[in-house]
Design a protein around this nucleic acid. Structure first.
Length: 382
RNA sequence: GCCGGGUUGGCAGAGCGGUCAAUUGCACUUGACUGUAAAUCAAGCGCCCUCGUGGCUUCGGAGGUUCGAAUCCUUCACCCGGCA
């Protein structure tokens, strides 16, 4: 279980195509995991996800713990059964909430209704975004919850500091994350789940090296890079990824958490990343924005023979636009001949169908992008 | 014809003597969104500029009262009820 086999390796970069085995089936990497935080990729049924091309989806420990609770899900037969998805699932540990519910992140969003999280050696004190109630989560709790949920791949509970953190703070986050990893391994019981450690270290080279070396030494079968896309510049992300993949073992899948934009995915694949997850395609869809292939676009995608543009269908210039988004796209909306004016109309009417169709379209875009990148690796262009 | 109610910025709709260029919602414009507190959020939305506790013109039309009117009075126009 959880074997990873490299199928094809680039001669010009660290990029590779691989097979990753899990209890609920194989994954071909590079792979993109759509985010289904509360047990659903918003507006997408399992059948929709399969049609769009999803191979594995992500859910969140923190959210499912708060509601409906891991005990209920366990009783229901586990997450796969509960949500009707028979393919691989990865649960994030709740570590990201250390960041997203932290003071700087809340301030940045102007959120005042939730008290910021407090981090200690023991764990993290959160205030539920649902009812404000105080919660405490330790690395051990996170593992126990994730074992109840029953995902194929589970994540170590990490400390993800914001981008503007001081080096000292990031250093503290790194060492805390490492200690929490060791504690997680102590309580982990299930052998049919792969626990993936997370590299922290922000934009600091020595910290990334140290963190990557440390998690590598645990030899856990897959490794993740976190603490990225928390407010820093793209170049810094690429840089951090490069530092990490220089060290993280070639023989195991590397997962870059929270990325991203098409160009970022391509840059990371080139640097040896195999797994991605991001809310962007689904969130942007809900905000009326679609990704569209474009040969002339200024947004280039390394390794792909096309660039892309972001099109906001809410703009009134699409009011009378009877063309579909992309003739070549295989998504429900495009293949169904639904024009931009209709999609815009659905969005304006707040018809759920509108955001569903855009979500479907964007996910198809990313799944196909990742698939195209695999071809590029095989053909030697990436 | 008589009696009553109404006419406010693209639309709906607050305001009913000064703090009103006018609450709010929608629409519109722009921006943001990278391990989802996000089907969300921010800013703008009469005109002008040296962009400010700035200037100018606005609340159906005209006139009036008042230091001051979207707010009170007169009148005209139109709309909606009720009775003819």
């Amino acid at each position: 279980m959880f074997e990873y086999k490299i199928n094809s390796k680039s001669k010009k970069s660290k990029a590779r195509v691989g097979f990753f085995n899990t209890p609920h089936g194989d994954i071909i990497t590079p792979v993109f995991m759509p985010v289904g935080t509360v047990g659903a990729v918003k507006t997408m049924s399992p059948a929709d996800l399969e049609t769009a091309g999803a191979e594995i989806i992500l859910a969140n420990t923190y959210h499912l713990h708060l509601r409906p609770g891991e005990n209920l899900i366990k009783k229901a037969g586990g997450l796969h059964k509960f949500i009707g998805w028979n393919k691989p699932v990865l649960t994030d540990s709740g570590g990201f909430q250390v960041f997203s519910l932290s003071e700087p992140a809340l301030k940045r969003r102007g959120v005042k209704t939730v008290k910021p999280a407090r981090i200690s050696e023991k764990g993290v004190e959160f205030y539920s975004h649902l009812d404000g109630s105080r919660r405490f989560m330790t690395p051990e709790d996170s593992i126990k919850i994730q074992e109840s949920l029953g995902a194929d791949i589970i994540m170590a509970f990490d400390y993800c500091p914001p981008a503007n953190s001081s080096k000292l703070k990031v250093q503290e986050a790194v060492s805390t994350t490492h200690r929490w990893l060791a504690r997680s391994l102590k309580v982990k019981k299930r052998s049919d789940q792969l626990l993936v450690p997370i590299c922290q270290g922000g934009v600091y080279r020595d910290l990334r090296f140290f963190s990557a070396e440390t998690i590598k030494s645990f030899n856990l079968g897959a490794n993740a890079i976190g603490g990225v896309s928390v407010g820093e510049k793209k170049e810094k992300i690429y840089q951090a990824v490069e530092w990490c993949t220089d060290i993280l073992p070639e023989g195991s899948p590397r997962y870059l958490m929270g990325i991203g934009y098409p160009e970022d995915i391509a840059e990371a694949v080139e640097r040896g990343i195999d797994m991605f997850d991001c809310v962007l395609p689904t969130r942007l869809a809900r905000h009326g924005v679609v990704w569209k292939k474009s040969k002339s676009s200024v947004k280039k995608i390394k390794g792909a023979d096309y660039g892309y543009e972001q099109v906001n269908l809410l703009k009134s210039k699409f009011k009378g636009d009877l063309d579909i988004i992309d003739e070549a796209c295989r998504c429900k909306a495009c293949r169904g001949g639904l024009c931009k004016s209709y999609l815009r109309h659905l969005l304006l009417e707040r018809e759920p169908l509108g955001i569903h169709l855009l979500t479907f379209h964007n996910l198809v875009f990313v799944f196909d992008l990742v698939s195209d990148l695999r071809e590029s690796i095989k053909s030697g262009t990436l």
